[in-house]
């Protein structure tokens, strides 16, 4: 179960991008999802994110995210439907509650809630993409000059995780073989048994932490200012991707300033029919963001492209 979300090197084009390029892509997805409120724009973004996820071979991982976030989406729809009183198309008069008063359910509130659900899904999917295409080491190394200690703490913790998991399993086995039955006893007894495992783990892990610290010090950690080891190369592919993302960001700002990316929900739903220019803008935004996914696809079937970029 744990394997699913962890970065795996698959030799994909998307994984070969410079971390700055891939992070810009993720950040663009994230920020645009937060900025736009027009259903077309949000759904369009979702489409592009899913396209990228598909290119990264991560739709299975995404399903996991979807399941986890589904209840939150439902909750958002529900709260919006109940609490929001700005809508005018009343579908149901709703219950009468103390403190809140009458809670009418309106068409507008439900639509708003649903769109917000899509917004959440967009952000979550963007993070899913992040997990799939950015190697954590490469991500953290971007920050290691400005925040060397914090980055080290996080890297170390991530590295320790699988190690501790294995230790935990060994401790549990050792306890079982000393006669501890984890499936028996009252709740209190069972908790105490698990407490013993946990304490053993904590003791061992903390003891080891001192040895790790020693090894770090022996390798000159904290001996003065630190430099950063870069192993990323900036290739034409990164420039192309960044150009695409940059273009779509620019167009987004333009359409937001022109009020095209936003949508009126209250008191009455606005017209969904967009102007010609707003549709063109949307198309440019989406196309710009799809550049990495399209290149990934192109490189897969057309080696010549891969060699050149």
């Amino acid at each position: 179960m744990l394997q699913k979300f962890i970065y795996q090197e698959k030799g994909l084009f998307l994984q070969s991008l410079h971390p700055v390029a891939s992070l810009t892509l993720i950040a663009a997805f994230f920020l645009l999802s937060l900025s736009f409120s027009h259903p077309y724009y949000l759904l369009g973004l979702l489409l592009v994110i899913l396209l990228s996820l598909w290119a990264a071979g991560g739709l299975a991982a995404w399903e996991g995210y979807l399941k986890a976030v589904l209840w939150l989406i439902l909750l958002i729809v529900l709260i919006n439907a109940l609490v929001n009183r700005s809508g005018s198309t009343i579908l149901w008069n709703g219950p009468e509650l103390p403190l809140f008063g009458r809670l009418p359910v309106t068409m507008e509130a439900i639509s708003y809630g649903a769109t917000m659900g899509v917004r959440l899904l967009n952000m979550v999917s963007a993070f899913c993409l992040f997990n799939l295409i950015v190697h954590p080491d490469r991500f953290f190394s971007l920050f290691s000059t400005v925040a060397r200690k914090s980055v080290l703490v996080v890297t170390l913790a991530t590295r320790l995780f699988p190690l501790l998991l294995a230790t935990l399993e060994r401790i549990r086995e050792a306890q079982q073989l000393r006669g501890v039955d984890f499936s028996q006893g009252t709740l209190r007894e069972r908790v105490m048994k698990n407490a013993a495992i946990f304490n053993t783990l904590l003791l061992s892990a903390l003891e080891d932490s001192l040895q790790m610290a020693e090894a770090m010090q022996a390798r000159a950690f904290g001996s003065g200012s630190r430099s950063r080891y870069r192993r990323d190369i900036f290739r034409p592919r990164d420039a192309i991707c960044l150009a695409g993302i940059g273009l779509s960001l620019l167009v987004s700002v333009y359409s937001l300033a022109r009020g095209m990316g936003t949508y009126t929900y209250f008191p009455e739903l606005g017209s969904l029919q967009g102007s010609k220019i707003s549709l063109i803008a949307l198309a440019v935004v989406l196309l710009g963001l799809s550049v990495p996914a399209l290149l990934n696809w192109g490189c897969k079937y057309w080696p010549y492209l891969k060699w050149k970029i």
Partner: peptide, 16 residues
């Protein structure tokens, strides 16, 4: 210390 092999080798060098 690090999660990846290459960055592990580089760790000491960065510290220097």
């Amino acid at each position: 210390v690090m999660t990846g092999v290459e960055s592990e080798v580089a760790f000491g060098l960065e510290n220097l």
